[in-house]
């Protein structure tokens, strides 16, 4: 996949990489992803930890044969989906516009 690049295109790439917007794009991303990933991991580990050290709580019957452990497990699916949804919205709002701007710069610079 090694393609030939004209010096102008190469320079454009280098300039964009060093630009404030590109740094902003990456930091916006990290600002969302790092806390979210850590939070989700903790929420997920909480399930394992509770099962391990609070079996009484997890074994509590809510109704019929449905206990807290089962509800907790099902909630994990719901939150997984919820986070994905929030992420899709966040990237459409905070990342896509910056990225589109960078692309315009690039196109202007290499003259297409």
């Amino acid at each position: 996949m090694a393609e030939k690049l004209t010096p102008e295109v190469h320079a454009a790439y280098e300039r964009i990489h060093d630009s404030e917007e590109f740094t902003q794009l990456r930091s916006n991303y990290l600002r969302f992803v790092v806390p979210m990933t850590v939070g989700f991991m903790l929420w997920y580990l909480l399930y394992v930890v509770c099962s391990n050290w609070a079996p009484g709580l997890m074994g509590t019957q809510v109704f019929g044969t449905i206990n807290v452990a089962l509800l907790f497990g099902l909630l994990q699916f719901v939150t997984t989906f919820g986070i994905a949804w929030v992420y899709a919205r966040y990237s459409a709002r905070a990342m896509d516009p910056i990225a589109a701007g960078l692309l315009e710069d690039f196109e202007r610079e290499v003259g297409r």
């Binding site: 790439y13 280098e14 964009i16 990489h17 990225a99 692309l103």
Partner: peptide
Amino acid sequence: ARTMVRLHTPERV
């Protein structure tokens, strides 16, 4: 630098 820009900006070109 080029690869990073390419990975993190949308692709219309």
